[in-house]
């Protein structure tokens, strides 16, 4: 019988300082040591960690269409993520998963896609963007709306700026407060969304970020005419087992690790605690 608690060994092949802000974020490129692929879907997560320290559920920040490695963008917050930040290329970490449902990208084919991210919340949205870019003709317009506290907290800045320049997607970056040299939107992400006013016509909107941001983004999307079923989010909670048994990540009767992390607002709006 397959033991879901046993981790695989993964090797770090690259570490990038993603956002040097107050709560630093690093992006780790890793490969499974046995050379296997994880066969994940965009939006799924994996539990990564260091033996002797512990594990954390982290969303996989790369699309399965990018086969050379898996990427994890990790903010340094607790015991495990602090230890991960000490890791260098060549170090090994433990990895199990993938976990959760992932985004129903197949259902979204032929549609326009809007992602609305805040802070580290762009990480789970990135595989959507990558998957669409890698299968560009399957989807309609792609709009990336993304903001962070400051320019130092923006993740994937270079690739998003490149994307904006090359034009396969429209990209709208923002920061919360004025900064010298910043000529894009200043203000909170939900407000930027209202500025951009994406059309709900044949469109799916996916948002991830701090809970407060998600709530206002959903409110504003509804105002723009999106229906509950057109809005998706991906959530997090403290997790341990990853398979819906240890109890702690529930929102109502659903477990984020197993039944999520991706929920349509249609499902979410009826859950207590949301």
């Amino acid at each position: 019988m397959n033991n879901p608690y046993l981790p695989q060994v993964a090797k770090i092949i690259d570490v990038k300082d993603e956002a040097p802000g107050e709560r630093p974020i690093k992006t780790f490129k890793v490969v499974l040591e046995n050379g296997n692929s994880l066969n994940h879907r965009p939006g799924q997560c994996a539990i990564i960690g260091i033996l002797g320290i512990g594990e954390s559920m982290i969303s996989i920040a790369s699309s399965p269409t990018r086969k050379d490695c898996l990427e994890f963008s990790v903010m340094r917050l607790g015991t495990v993520t602090s230890a991960l930040h000490e890791c260098e290329p060549g170090d090994t970490i433990s990895l199990r998963g993938p976990y959760g449902n992932g985004f129903p990208l197949d259902d979204w084919k032929g549609k326009n896609i809007v992602t609305i991210g805040g802070g580290i919340g762009q990480a789970p949205l990135r595989p959507i963007v990558q998957s669409i870019l890698d299968n560009r003709s399957d989807f309609g317009d792609l709009t990336v709306i993304y903001g962070a506290r400051s320019s130092h907290d923006l993740c994937f800045k270079d690739e998003l700026l490149a994307l904006e320049k090359d034009g396969p997607a429209s990209v709208h970056l923002s920061i919360d407060a004025e900064e010298p040299g910043w000529n894009k939107f200043v203000g909170f992400v939900p407000n930027n969304l209202l500025e951009i006013k994406p059309s709900p016509e044949n469109c799916i909107a996916i948002t991830c970020g701090p809970v407060v941001m998600i709530k206002y983004v959903i409110k504003n999307l509804l105002e723009l005419g999106f229906t509950d079923a057109q809005i998706f989010t991906t959530m997090e909670n403290r997790m341990k087992c990853g398979i819906g048994k240890c109890g702690r990540c529930n929102v109502g009767h659903l477990y984020i690790c197993k039944d999520g992390p991706v929920f349509s607002y249609d499902t979410l709006k009826d859950l207590p605690e949301f």
Partner: peptide, 23 residues
Amino acid sequence: YCFDMQDETTLKQGRRVRIWDSC
């Protein structure tokens, strides 16, 4: 049945152990 999972390490070796937790 809720549980926690912890790594407990001594000098030479360690174990990952699950322990009852409480909501």
